[in-house]
Protein backbone atom coordinates (compact mmCIF):
# COMPACT_ATOMS: atom_id res chain seq x y z
CA UNK A 1 0.00 0.00 0.00
CA UNK A 2 1.53 3.29 -1.03
CA UNK A 3 0.21 6.46 0.49
CA UNK A 4 0.90 10.00 -0.45
CA UNK A 5 3.73 11.67 1.41
CA UNK A 6 2.49 14.17 3.97
CA UNK A 7 4.22 17.53 3.62
CA UNK A 8 4.39 19.81 6.64
CA UNK A 9 6.59 22.26 8.51
CA UNK A 10 7.41 20.14 11.54
CA UNK A 11 6.96 16.51 12.51
CA UNK A 12 6.94 15.94 16.26
CA UNK A 13 7.86 12.42 17.29
CA UNK A 14 5.94 11.68 20.49
CA UNK A 15 2.62 13.17 21.66
CA UNK A 16 3.53 13.27 25.37
CA UNK A 17 3.00 16.49 27.34
CA UNK A 18 6.13 18.05 25.90
CA UNK A 19 5.34 17.20 22.29
CA UNK A 20 1.84 18.61 22.78
CA UNK A 21 3.10 21.90 24.17
CA UNK A 22 5.62 22.16 21.33
CA UNK A 23 2.63 22.42 18.95
CA UNK A 24 1.60 25.56 20.77
CA UNK A 25 5.02 27.20 20.77
CA UNK A 26 5.67 26.32 17.11
CA UNK A 27 2.15 27.41 16.23
CA UNK A 28 2.76 30.90 17.61
CA UNK A 29 5.57 31.11 15.08
CA UNK A 30 3.26 29.97 12.24
CA UNK A 31 4.70 26.49 11.99
CA UNK A 32 2.26 23.70 11.30
CA UNK A 33 2.81 20.37 13.06
CA UNK A 34 2.04 16.70 12.63
CA UNK A 35 2.53 14.46 15.68
CA UNK A 36 3.22 10.75 15.56
CA UNK A 37 2.88 8.41 18.53
CA UNK A 38 2.91 4.66 18.89
CA UNK A 39 0.24 4.90 21.58
CA UNK A 40 -3.43 5.00 20.62
CA UNK A 41 -3.89 8.29 22.48
CA UNK A 42 -2.07 11.52 23.40
CA UNK A 43 -0.35 12.20 26.72
CA UNK A 44 2.67 9.88 26.78
CA UNK A 45 3.60 8.80 30.31
CA UNK A 46 0.88 11.00 31.83
CA UNK A 47 -1.83 9.12 29.93
CA UNK A 48 -0.34 5.64 29.88
CA UNK A 49 1.34 5.32 33.25
CA UNK A 50 -0.55 7.60 35.61
CA UNK A 51 -3.76 9.07 34.13
CA UNK A 52 -5.46 9.26 37.52
CA UNK A 53 -2.53 10.25 39.71
CA UNK A 54 -2.25 13.88 40.75
CA UNK A 55 0.64 16.08 39.60
CA UNK A 56 1.47 18.93 41.99
CA UNK A 57 4.27 20.80 40.24
CA UNK A 58 2.72 22.30 37.13
CA UNK A 59 2.94 26.08 37.61
CA UNK A 60 -0.48 27.62 38.08
CA UNK A 61 -2.25 24.26 38.45
CA UNK A 62 -1.87 23.32 42.13
CA UNK A 63 -3.17 19.83 41.36
CA UNK A 64 -3.97 18.21 38.05
CA UNK A 65 -4.24 14.56 37.00
CA UNK A 66 -2.17 13.14 34.15
CA UNK A 67 -5.32 12.78 32.06
CA UNK A 68 -6.58 16.27 32.75
CA UNK A 69 -3.21 17.84 31.95
CA UNK A 70 -3.23 15.99 28.64
CA UNK A 71 -6.72 17.28 27.84
CA UNK A 72 -5.75 20.85 28.67
CA UNK A 73 -2.64 20.67 26.51
CA UNK A 74 -4.74 19.35 23.61
CA UNK A 75 -7.14 22.24 24.07
CA UNK A 76 -4.27 24.71 24.15
CA UNK A 77 -2.81 23.26 20.93
CA UNK A 78 -6.15 23.04 19.11
CA UNK A 79 -6.13 26.55 17.52
CA UNK A 80 -3.09 25.48 15.49
CA UNK A 81 -4.90 22.47 13.99
CA UNK A 82 -2.19 19.93 14.64
CA UNK A 83 -2.69 16.54 13.03
CA UNK A 84 -2.27 13.43 15.15
CA UNK A 85 -1.18 10.05 13.88
CA UNK A 86 -1.64 7.39 16.56
CA UNK A 87 -0.59 3.74 16.57
CA UNK A 88 2.33 4.66 14.39
CA UNK A 89 5.99 4.33 15.29
CA UNK A 90 8.49 6.49 13.45
CA UNK A 91 11.06 4.04 12.15
CA UNK A 92 13.11 6.05 9.68
CA UNK A 93 14.41 9.57 9.86
CA UNK A 94 16.70 10.86 7.10
CA UNK A 95 17.99 14.28 6.17
CA UNK A 96 17.56 15.27 2.52
CA UNK A 97 20.23 17.20 0.64
CA UNK A 98 18.27 20.44 0.82
CA UNK A 99 18.16 20.23 4.65
CA UNK A 100 14.59 18.97 4.83
CA UNK A 101 13.65 15.60 6.30
CA UNK A 102 12.09 12.32 5.31
CA UNK A 103 10.29 10.20 7.92
CA UNK A 104 8.59 6.85 7.66
CA UNK A 105 6.44 4.94 10.16
CA UNK A 106 5.99 1.22 10.68
CA UNK A 107 2.48 1.59 9.28
CA UNK A 108 3.83 3.02 6.03
CA UNK A 109 3.09 6.73 6.54
CA UNK A 110 5.72 8.99 5.01
CA UNK A 111 6.40 12.62 5.82
CA UNK A 112 8.38 15.40 4.26
CA UNK A 113 9.18 18.00 6.92
CA UNK A 114 11.28 21.14 7.20
CA UNK A 115 12.31 20.34 10.78
CA UNK A 116 11.91 17.46 13.21
CA UNK A 117 11.28 17.53 16.94
CA UNK A 118 12.07 14.41 18.91
CA UNK A 119 9.85 14.48 22.03
CA UNK A 120 10.09 10.75 22.57
CA UNK A 121 10.32 10.72 26.37
CA UNK A 122 11.63 7.42 27.65
CA UNK A 123 11.23 5.95 24.19
CA UNK A 124 8.32 4.24 22.50
CA UNK A 125 5.81 2.32 24.55
CA UNK A 126 6.00 -1.37 23.76
CA UNK A 127 4.28 -4.44 25.21
CA UNK A 128 5.87 -6.05 28.25
CA UNK A 129 6.83 -9.65 27.68
CA UNK A 130 6.11 -12.21 30.36
CA UNK A 131 9.25 -13.99 31.59
CA UNK A 132 8.28 -17.44 30.31
CA UNK A 133 11.31 -19.46 29.15
CA UNK A 134 11.56 -19.91 25.38
CA UNK A 135 8.64 -17.60 24.53
CA UNK A 136 10.69 -15.88 21.78
CA UNK A 137 10.47 -18.99 19.58
CA UNK A 138 6.68 -18.61 19.42
CA UNK A 139 6.46 -14.85 18.97
CA UNK A 140 4.79 -13.77 15.75
CA UNK A 141 3.74 -17.37 15.00
CA UNK A 142 1.39 -18.34 17.82
CA UNK A 143 2.19 -15.78 20.54
CA UNK A 144 1.10 -12.19 19.84
CA UNK A 145 1.34 -9.07 22.00
CA UNK A 146 -1.25 -7.12 20.06
CA UNK A 147 -4.15 -7.68 17.73
CA UNK A 148 -3.67 -5.91 14.42
CA UNK A 149 -6.35 -7.75 12.43
CA UNK A 150 -9.13 -9.62 14.23
CA UNK A 151 -9.65 -11.91 11.23
CA UNK A 152 -6.24 -13.49 11.86
CA UNK A 153 -7.73 -15.03 15.00
CA UNK A 154 -10.86 -16.55 13.51
CA UNK A 155 -11.30 -20.21 14.38
CA UNK A 156 -8.35 -20.26 16.80
CA UNK A 157 -8.18 -21.79 20.24
CA UNK A 158 -7.14 -18.67 22.09
CA UNK A 159 -5.66 -18.23 25.53
CA UNK A 160 -5.42 -14.64 26.79
CA UNK A 161 -3.24 -13.82 29.79
CA UNK A 162 -3.59 -10.67 31.91
CA UNK A 163 -6.09 -8.68 33.94
CA UNK A 164 -6.16 -5.20 32.41
CA UNK A 165 -8.46 -3.56 29.89
CA UNK A 166 -6.63 -4.98 26.87
CA UNK A 167 -6.90 -8.55 28.19
CA UNK A 168 -10.60 -8.18 28.99
CA UNK A 169 -11.53 -6.27 25.83
CA UNK A 170 -9.85 -8.75 23.52
CA UNK A 171 -11.36 -11.68 25.41
CA UNK A 172 -14.81 -10.24 24.79
CA UNK A 173 -14.15 -9.12 21.21
CA UNK A 174 -12.45 -12.27 19.98
CA UNK A 175 -14.73 -14.76 21.74
CA UNK A 176 -17.42 -14.72 18.99
CA UNK A 177 -14.95 -15.54 16.20
CA UNK A 178 -12.63 -17.88 18.11
CA UNK A 179 -13.12 -21.62 18.14
CA UNK A 180 -12.49 -21.54 21.89
CA UNK A 181 -11.58 -18.78 24.32
CA UNK A 182 -9.84 -18.98 27.70
CA UNK A 183 -8.56 -16.27 30.00
CA UNK A 184 -5.91 -16.70 32.66
CA UNK A 185 -5.04 -14.25 35.42
CA UNK A 186 -3.21 -14.53 38.72
CA UNK A 187 -6.14 -13.40 40.82
CA UNK A 188 -9.85 -12.75 40.62
CA UNK A 189 -9.36 -8.98 40.55
CA UNK A 190 -8.97 -6.88 37.44
CA UNK A 191 -7.63 -3.50 36.43
CA UNK A 192 -10.36 -3.05 33.86
CA UNK A 193 -13.72 -1.41 33.34
CA UNK A 194 -16.22 -3.19 35.64
CA UNK A 195 -18.56 -3.58 32.68
CA UNK A 196 -15.94 -5.67 30.82
CA UNK A 197 -15.34 -7.82 33.88
CA UNK A 198 -19.08 -8.48 34.17
CA UNK A 199 -19.31 -9.35 30.48
CA UNK A 200 -16.44 -11.80 30.86
CA UNK A 201 -18.07 -13.48 33.87
CA UNK A 202 -21.32 -13.70 31.93
CA UNK A 203 -19.55 -15.48 29.06
CA UNK A 204 -18.12 -17.95 31.57
CA UNK A 205 -21.63 -18.51 32.99
CA UNK A 206 -22.93 -19.20 29.49
CA UNK A 207 -20.04 -21.66 29.03
CA UNK A 208 -18.79 -19.71 26.03
CA UNK A 209 -15.32 -19.41 27.58
CA UNK A 210 -13.22 -20.51 30.55
CA UNK A 211 -11.43 -18.48 33.19
CA UNK A 212 -8.39 -19.90 35.01
CA UNK A 213 -6.61 -18.57 38.06
CA UNK A 214 -2.85 -18.94 37.92
CA UNK A 215 0.29 -18.14 35.99
CA UNK A 216 1.78 -19.69 32.87
CA UNK A 217 5.09 -21.38 33.67
CA UNK A 218 5.84 -23.29 30.48
CA UNK A 219 4.89 -23.33 26.80
CA UNK A 220 4.48 -26.52 24.79
CA UNK A 221 4.63 -26.88 21.04
CA UNK A 222 6.83 -27.33 18.00
CA UNK A 223 8.49 -24.97 15.55
CA UNK A 224 6.81 -21.96 17.05
CA UNK A 225 3.35 -23.53 16.96
CA UNK A 226 1.82 -23.67 20.40
CA UNK A 227 -0.20 -26.71 21.50
CA UNK A 228 -0.70 -25.81 25.14
CA UNK A 229 0.77 -24.31 28.31
CA UNK A 230 1.51 -25.42 31.85
CA UNK A 231 -0.09 -23.27 34.50
CA UNK A 232 0.74 -23.00 38.17
CA UNK A 233 -2.52 -22.58 39.98
CA UNK A 234 -2.86 -20.50 43.11
CA UNK A 235 -2.84 -23.71 45.19
CA UNK A 236 0.62 -24.44 43.78
CA UNK A 237 -0.63 -27.32 41.61
CA UNK A 238 0.45 -27.42 37.96
CA UNK A 239 -2.21 -27.99 35.34
CA UNK A 240 -2.36 -28.01 31.54
CA UNK A 241 -4.32 -25.72 29.28
CA UNK A 242 -4.67 -26.50 25.57
CA UNK A 243 -4.53 -23.68 23.06
CA UNK A 244 -2.97 -22.83 19.70
CA UNK A 245 -2.73 -19.07 20.20
CA UNK A 246 -1.54 -17.10 23.21
CA UNK A 247 -2.10 -13.37 23.69
CA UNK A 248 -0.24 -12.00 26.74
CA UNK A 249 -1.35 -8.51 27.80
CA UNK A 250 0.88 -7.21 30.59
CA UNK A 251 0.82 -3.51 29.91
CA UNK A 252 3.45 -1.38 28.27
CA UNK A 253 6.98 -0.37 29.03
CA UNK A 254 9.25 2.20 27.40
CA UNK A 255 12.03 1.11 25.07
CA UNK A 256 14.29 3.51 23.18
CA UNK A 257 13.31 1.84 19.91
CA UNK A 258 14.31 3.02 16.43
CA UNK A 259 15.85 6.33 17.62
CA UNK A 260 19.13 4.46 18.03
CA UNK A 261 19.26 3.89 14.25
CA UNK A 262 18.93 7.48 13.09
CA UNK A 263 22.60 8.35 13.31
CA UNK A 264 22.01 10.91 16.04
CA UNK A 265 24.54 11.13 18.83
CA UNK A 266 23.25 9.35 21.96
CA UNK A 267 24.57 9.19 25.47
CA UNK A 268 23.18 6.36 27.59
CA UNK A 269 19.98 6.32 25.54
CA UNK A 270 19.51 10.08 25.85
CA UNK A 271 20.10 12.73 23.22
CA UNK A 272 22.63 15.39 24.22
CA UNK A 273 21.53 18.92 23.27
CA UNK A 274 22.63 22.48 23.92
CA UNK A 275 20.48 24.67 26.13
CA UNK A 276 19.98 27.50 23.67
CA UNK A 277 18.42 25.69 20.73
CA UNK A 278 17.88 22.16 22.04
CA UNK A 279 19.30 20.97 18.77
CA UNK A 280 20.85 17.51 18.36
CA UNK A 281 24.14 16.97 16.55
CA UNK A 282 22.09 17.15 13.32
CA UNK A 283 20.96 20.69 12.39
CA UNK A 284 17.19 20.86 12.07
CA UNK A 285 16.54 17.93 14.43
CA UNK A 286 15.61 19.04 17.93
CA UNK A 287 15.16 16.99 21.11
CA UNK A 288 13.01 18.13 24.04
CA UNK A 289 11.51 16.59 27.17
CA UNK A 290 12.63 13.40 28.89
CA UNK A 291 14.59 12.17 25.88
CA UNK A 292 17.27 14.87 26.01
CA UNK A 293 20.16 15.49 28.34
CA UNK A 294 22.31 18.50 29.22
CA UNK A 295 24.10 19.67 32.36
CA UNK A 296 21.52 20.15 35.11
CA UNK A 297 18.68 18.42 33.22
CA UNK A 298 15.61 17.61 35.31
CA UNK A 299 13.10 15.14 33.90
CA UNK A 300 10.11 17.29 34.68
CA UNK A 301 7.18 18.34 32.54
CA UNK A 302 7.95 21.94 33.53
CA UNK A 303 11.45 21.71 32.07
CA UNK A 304 10.08 20.21 28.86
CA UNK A 305 7.75 23.19 28.41
CA UNK A 306 10.63 25.64 28.71
CA UNK A 307 12.67 23.60 26.26
CA UNK A 308 9.77 23.67 23.78
CA UNK A 309 9.64 27.47 23.85
CA UNK A 310 13.34 27.93 23.13
CA UNK A 311 13.43 25.12 20.59
CA UNK A 312 10.59 26.75 18.62
CA UNK A 313 12.62 29.92 18.13
CA UNK A 314 15.58 27.92 16.85
CA UNK A 315 13.42 25.76 14.56
CA UNK A 316 11.81 28.87 13.08
CA UNK A 317 15.23 30.29 12.22
CA UNK A 318 16.32 26.98 10.71
CA UNK A 319 13.22 26.73 8.53
CA UNK A 320 13.11 30.38 7.52
CA UNK A 321 16.46 32.10 8.08
CA UNK A 322 15.10 35.35 6.60
CA UNK A 323 12.13 35.58 8.97
CA UNK A 324 12.25 38.25 11.61
CA UNK A 325 11.38 36.56 14.88
CA UNK A 326 10.16 39.23 17.24
CA UNK A 327 9.52 38.55 20.87
CA UNK A 328 5.85 38.98 21.81
CA UNK A 329 3.49 38.32 24.70
CA UNK A 330 0.23 36.40 24.18
CA UNK A 331 -1.38 38.89 26.58
CA UNK A 332 -0.76 41.94 24.45
CA UNK A 333 0.08 40.90 20.90
CA UNK A 334 -2.89 41.17 18.53
CA UNK A 335 -1.07 39.07 15.97
CA UNK A 336 -0.57 36.21 18.45
CA UNK A 337 -4.16 36.54 19.63
CA UNK A 338 -5.40 36.25 16.03
CA UNK A 339 -3.48 33.01 15.68
CA UNK A 340 -5.10 31.76 18.87
CA UNK A 341 -8.51 32.74 17.54
CA UNK A 342 -9.26 35.04 20.48
CA UNK A 343 -8.80 38.44 18.85
Amino acid sequence: MTQETITTDVVIIGAGPVGLFAVFELGLLDLKCHLVDILDKPGGQCAELYPEKPIYDIPGLPVVSGQELTERLMEQAAPFNPEYHYNEMVEELRKNEDGSFHLKTDGGLTFHAKAVVIAAGGGSFQPKKPPIPGIEAYEGKSVFYSVKRMEDFRGKNILISGGGDSALDWTINLEPIANSMQLIHRRDGFRAAPDSVNKMHALVEEQKMKFHLGQITELHGDNGQLTGVSVKGNDGEIFQVECDTLLPFFGLTMKLGPIANWGINLNENLIPVDTEKFVTDAEGIYAIGDINTYPGKLKLILSGFHEAALMAQAAKRYIDPEAKVTFQYTTSSTSLQKKLGVA
Binding site: P131, G162, G164, H185, R186, R187, G189, Q215, F250, G251
Partner: peptide, 14 residues
Protein backbone atom coordinates in the same frame (compact mmCIF):
# COMPACT_ATOMS: atom_id res chain seq x y z
CA UNK B 1 -3.40 -2.03 47.98
CA UNK B 2 -5.34 -2.53 44.78
CA UNK B 3 -2.90 -0.49 42.67
CA UNK B 4 0.02 -2.53 43.99
CA UNK B 5 -1.79 -5.75 43.04
CA UNK B 6 -2.41 -4.34 39.55
CA UNK B 7 1.29 -3.63 39.10
CA UNK B 8 2.22 -7.11 40.39
CA UNK B 9 -0.22 -8.55 37.83
CA UNK B 10 1.45 -6.66 35.02
CA UNK B 11 4.89 -7.73 36.12
CA UNK B 12 4.36 -11.40 36.69
CA UNK B 13 4.53 -11.27 40.45
CA UNK B 14 4.71 -14.54 42.35
Amino acid sequence: REDELDMLDENYGG
